[in-house]
Nucleic acid binder design. Sequence first.
DNA 1: CGAGATCTTGATCTGGTTCAAAGCAAGTGG
DNA 2: CCACTTGCTTTGAACCAGATCAAGATCTCG
Lengths: 262, 262
Amino acid sequence: MRERVQDSGNCKVAANRRLHPDSHTCDLCEARAFNMCNALEPEELARLAAIMSHQTVEAGGTFIEEGAAADDLFNLTSGTVKVFKLLSDGRCQITGFMMAGDFLGLSRGGTYAYSATAITPVTFCRFQRPQLRGLFNELPKIERQMLGLAMNELMAAQDQMVLLGRKTARERIASFLLTLSDRAVRRGRPGNPVDLPMTRGDIADYLGLTTETVSRSFTQLKTERVIALKGNHGVEILDLDALVEIAGIDERSTAMAFDTIA
Amino acid sequence: MRERVQDSGNCKVAANRRLHPDSHTCDLCEARAFNMCNALEPEELARLAAIMSHQTVEAGGTFIEEGAAADDLFNLTSGTVKVFKLLSDGRCQITGFMMAGDFLGLSRGGTYAYSATAITPVTFCRFQRPQLRGLFNELPKIERQMLGLAMNELMAAQDQMVLLGRKTARERIASFLLTLSDRAVRRGRPGNPVDLPMTRGDIADYLGLTTETVSRSFTQLKTERVIALKGNHGVEILDLDALVEIAGIDERSTAMAFDTIA
DNA sequence: CGAGATCTTGATCTGGTTCAAAGCAAGTGG
DNA sequence: CCACTTGCTTTGAACCAGATCAAGATCTCG
């Protein structure tokens, strides 16, 4: 299995790197509080653990390819993943950056609806669909938890549509930084020096811009003393109020979360 | 209750028009096959029907307002609804056009995540959240069905992100027409003279464009004999292959649907 | 340390917006 | 039954935010 690379702008698709199986205990899982395992009793958790395997992928590894048979479902436990779709001429749209607690593997007609590539080294729990489906019948809690996660993702997707359809480059960058900061905080990490594991190109593909425009917007905000750049992969928010103001007043956004459907 | 109108570009928000309660039998429901009632046995359906009320809203009526207390969930049975979010300065992004079978009422922190306005007269089933939640425990089937619906919506949202982030105006219009056509077919309606109940302004707010650009793109496709305009609310597809070609080759899109999560 | 990748900056170009003004179609009331 | 309003839609002309093209500067990591 050597890495076939199909060029497509920033979103090169390298074939699956070797997946490294890994021992793992749910007790210590850092994603536990945010994911579908959240509501489970120890005994139930054990049953879930019985049908899953825990694995790692190195940075740059593509472990889901759009159009391939959707055999598995993934539950991230650490690291950051970019989820994206490509147009035939190579244009790329990243639909989300996934972190610990997020699940991956949406399918349409039995094939994956998007590709997923590790930006940092990642670890995840992997489930085979038929087995997971079986467990759903016995533990409807899981299904409910997933419905909640799906609803949250749907709301995030709607916010992203507003961003892509109606916001300026500057507003997009500001919103992006605030969203990342919020997400970090909600995962118990510091929200201020914002960590940007992805490249400028990835940010561009996420925000519907070009690398150059992303860079210029950062520079502009830096010049205005709203942010400070900490190398290529970190941003310090110097003036939060200003950033919120620039983002446009819809940053209720990802602020709170997890209403169940009813 | 008179209509307060808060101007905001194309997406004026008029206060709830009177909701007309309505008698209704699930047996005859035209949305039955596509919505969350689909998998239910007659006896189960009766229990669902017991906690719902069936209502109508006239065209132009706004029955969900972003930020208001999210007390109810809606399940459309006929008509077309636009779902949208507004920025503080009035910019509007329509995140979807909903039809029979779609559900409405996503909430975040107890308040609705978006507004919804009827484009045509609509009818829907209305559920109160607490009651529906109660039924979930007894009929997990409903929850599963909703998870499937949510997943489908999520995939549609991802396609829309590609459209908004990376497609040209021409490509957006072509994709839009194909998607509407597909949806009509999947609901057992003719797919070819495509019905456009919404205005050019609505289409613009959905596709991240302006009214003028939408109009110009239609005119261009008409000049090229790819489509023919049938008044303001209809489009005949004259050259389907060309339209698919123009849309960009990702129109697997809404083509098929309804994989369950696992 | 050095080479490739990533990031910034500058100059120019353009697709889509904005601003402005007719068309057009569906009522409405005289 | 027809002028008149009203709300879309189309078309035209000027403009601009962001894209594209083209160097450099700066990381990153073997």
